[in-house]
Simulated assay, not measured.
Amino acid sequence: MGHGTRILAIRHGETAWNVDTRIQGQLDIPLNDTGRWQAGRVAEALAGEDIAAIYASDLVRAADTAAAISLRTGLPVIHDQGLRERRFGLFQGRTVAEIEAIHPDLVRRWKSREPDFEPEGAESLRVFYQRSVDAAQRLAAAHPGETVVLVAHGGVLDCLYRAACGMPIEAPRTWQLGNASINRLLFTGERLTMIGWGDIQHLEGDTLEESSDGGRGLTPAHSLS
């Protein structure tokens, strides 16, 4: 791999709003019990990696997931706003069903992935994609030949997948963006390439009811931030 930077891109653990399919965007929603369990499991899974730095979105759900990795590895977390979820403006705080009832035309445009569509107060998909990819490449470029952890959001990981696979931003999503999943990329100094995606083996174990410490469970992940 030469002097390429290995990226471990992690989606934050689950929140109550993920379960409700409520759009978080840049609202600061904390991890739920399952999300905290997931953060601990991903931290254990990364314990054997030779990690040079941990970067994370400063939104609390990503920051707290990164904090669990920091606790396990002893590395500090460096927060970067470039890793924040897409700003969704008037969509934030509502479920998809609620938005469809109020703004069906806006939801249609959103779901069709119009690159320059901007609901009131939101980022366009094009601007968000560029911000996310630029942030990942900027942070990776500071660590040639090393491994970095980037803890971010579903939307950010979606952008990184598209960049690594050459997928247009308008294309429908056919890949998973699981909470606390481990996704492996390589930055060569010019572009991102894919190594592996959607690893959740570390989450296949005790459930909330079964864990001996009162637990932490695993529930289905949703694709909204």
Rank of each mutant, 00 (worst) to 15 (best):
E98I: 02
P144T: 08
L157E: 09
V133Y: 04
R109H: 07
L83M: 05
W175Q: 12
G48T: 03
S181C: 13
Q201K: 10
R113N: 08
V60M: 14
H12L: 04
P168M: 08
G4S: 12
G2P: 02
G74W: 02
T5H: 00
I54N: 04
H143Q: 05
D206W: 00
K111E: 14
A53N: 03
G13S: 08
V156A: 04
I54A: 03
E204Y: 05
D213K: 11
A101I: 01
A101G: 14
Q176M: 14
H103Y: 09
L71I: 01
T34L: 06
R61E: 08
V60I: 15
L90C: 13
L208W: 07
G2M: 06
G205R: 11
L208P: 00
Q24N: 04
T174E: 14
P144R: 08
L218E: 14
A142Y: 00
E123H: 00
A163T: 07
L218W: 08
V149W: 03
V60E: 14
Q24Y: 06
G35I: 11
D50Q: 13
I51C: 06
D58Q: 01
E85D: 10
V77A: 06
G215Y: 02
A140P: 07
R61M: 08
G215R: 10
E210G: 10
H3V: 02
A16C: 08
Q38W: 12
A136N: 09
D80V: 01
D28G: 12
I99R: 02
D134H: 11
G2S: 11
S112T: 01
A52I: 01
H202R: 07
E49R: 04
F91C: 02
L106W: 12
R113F: 09
G189S: 05
V133I: 05
E44Q: 15
A135H: 06
E190S: 14
S225F: 02
A164K: 06
L31P: 09
L31W: 09
D105P: 01
E120L: 08
P220Q: 09
A221I: 04
G13D: 09
L203G: 13
R84H: 09
L75W: 03
P172E: 13
L46M: 13
V151K: 02
G166M: 07
A53W: 02
A97W: 02
G25Y: 03
Q130A: 12
T188L: 01
A141P: 00
W17R: 07
T15V: 10
A163F: 12
